[in-house]
Each structure stands twice: as C-alpha cells, then as structure tokens.
C-alpha cells in the first residue's frame, strides 16, 4: 500500500528539498514507505486530500481545521515558537499611504492560501472593507502577488510575512506594507490521516529526536522549525478549528 506525503504550497519553495529529506526521516521513524509530492497550488493539494493522497501533511491553519474536523486527521506537531502572520501591501509609488486612503472597492492579489487570505481580509475590516468590497486576483505564488502590486495590476496584495521577508530588497523597496498581523496563534501543523493513527507516537518520538540532534539543526531551519518541533494536542487543533471558524467572514 502506497502512503503519501503531501508537501503543501505553504512551505518555503526554496526549501522543498528539505521536505524530501524530512520524508526520508519519517520513513525511518515509522518503517513505512511514503511517496512525497510537492504541490505548487492549493487546488491540487485539496484534490489530493479528497482522493486520499495525503497521509502526512504540513498544513496551514485553515486546512488543519478542515482536515481534523471533516476527515478525522490527527495533529502531531507544530514548529515551536513559529506563527503564521500576513500583511497587506500596496505599491510604494501608488496613491495609498495608509488604510484610510483605500478605495471602497479594492482589487487584491493573493495566493490561494486560505489562512493568509482569511487574515488579510480581517486586516482590511477596520477600513470598512468587507467581503463584498474586495475582488480577489489569485496568483500562483507570493512573488507574483508582489509583482501584480508593483505593476499596479492589483491595488493591494495579501502576503504571508515569511514570503515577504524572502523577497529581494529591490522588490521590497517597491512595496509599502499598510498593515501586518500580530496574531501569534495561527500556525501550520504536521498532521497524519486516520490510517496512520498507530504511527503518531513513533512520528512524534522521531521529531523529538530531531530537536536534540545537532546534525538536524540546519534541516529544521529549512523546514521552518528553527526552534524544533513541539507537540500539538487534539485540544490545540480544536482551538485552531474554532479560531479559523471565527475568522471566516460570512
């Protein structure tokens, strides 16, 4: 039986190779074979969820809520001390210098990352911009979101903070950050499908071993867990579900 490790578009694209190395480690932890696939867009990833091709996944908070609640996935771990933040950017040479300058109808470039979009929409609420006031222009990745804003194809953009930080200095100089989140409790999570219920403890033990292995330090940084992994309990996942529900605009 083939088991699948779905590498989400949430991970930093520059470090995809590290996730394939991580896959090898998980195979050692469990003694099971996993076929790893790196997804470049969320539609493909969600298709993999529906078709049962994601036995192991490092998922964003919105997908974590959906997978745990609707598909019975089990939480295993999250990157210690790392949260997902987002920001609203506009063109540095454009007319918008603050939230009060934004027009009543706004075109926003965004990737299809559901948690970033959800946070971005929340950040615009104080400017009286609700779901009906926004037209989303979905781009395949954050670099194209930044370019769409720089080139005035979109009036604003939603970017995950880590992706913004990874942009070149030249690109960043052409963007203005209007507002950034400081939420601290939205996190990506490592989840397993119900078929791997018996492997949760073995995987956690393996992750805990990585935390104390100096040879894993560089790999952990590449995986976005520079301070190692910490256990994610069902209560933590439950909280994430409630939080994502609360942040979903209706």
């Amino acid at each position: 039986m083939t088991r699948h490790f779905a590498i989400s578009p949430d991970v930093n694209v520059r470090h995809v190779a590290d996730w394939f190395i991580f896959n090898t480690k998980v195979q050692r932890m469990t003694g099971l074979g996993f076929h790893a696939t790196a997804y470049s867009d969320f539609a493909e990833l969600h298709e993999a969820y529906e078709e049962g091709r994601a036995d192991l996944v490092f998922a964003n908070a919105a997908d974590t809520a959906m997978l745990v609640r609707e598909h019975g996935y089990l939480p295993v771990a999250a990157a210690a001390g790392v949260s997902k933040e987002a920001m609203v950017v506009v063109a540095a040479d454009g007319p918008f210098r603050g939230m009060a300058d934004l027009p009543r109808q706004l075109t926003v470039a965004s990737t299809s990352a559901p948690d970033v979009e959800r946070i971005g929409r929340i950040l615009l609420e104080p400017a009286d911009l609700g779901p009906a006031d926004l037209t989303l222009d979905v781009k395949p990745n954050p670099v194209l979101v930044a370019k769409a804003v720089m080139w005035h194809e979109a009036q604003a953009g939603f970017l995950p903070q880590d992706a913004y930080e990874a942009l070149s200095a030249m690109v960043k100089a052409q963007l203005r950050v209007l507002v950034a989140s400081r939420i601290y409790v939205v996190r990506n999570a490592l989840l397993v499908s119900p078929a791997l219920t018996d492997e949760v403890e073995a995987i956690w033990d393996g992750l805990a071993s990585m935390n104390v292995d100096p040879d894993c330090a560089e790999l952990l940084t590449g995986l976005g867990a520079p301070h190692g992994w910490e256990r994610l309990t069902p209560e933590d996942a439950d909280f994430m579900i409630d939080l994502m529900d609360a942040l979903a605009q209706e």
């Binding site: 104080p126 409630d242 939080l243 529900d245 609360a246 942040l247």
Partner: peptide
Amino acid sequence: TVIPKVVDGVVVGHTSVRREPSRA
C-alpha cells in the same frame, strides 16, 4: 465574533475572537 462549541448537540463553551473595529 463568538462561536459556540457544540459537542453532541450541546453547547459546552464559547470561543471569542475580537479585532480592531472600523472607526465609522
């Protein structure tokens, strides 16, 4: 936003998320 926590059809608690309101 206040979300009720419902278990087996019974409300057992609430999660509340508060954010910056529009001044208008």
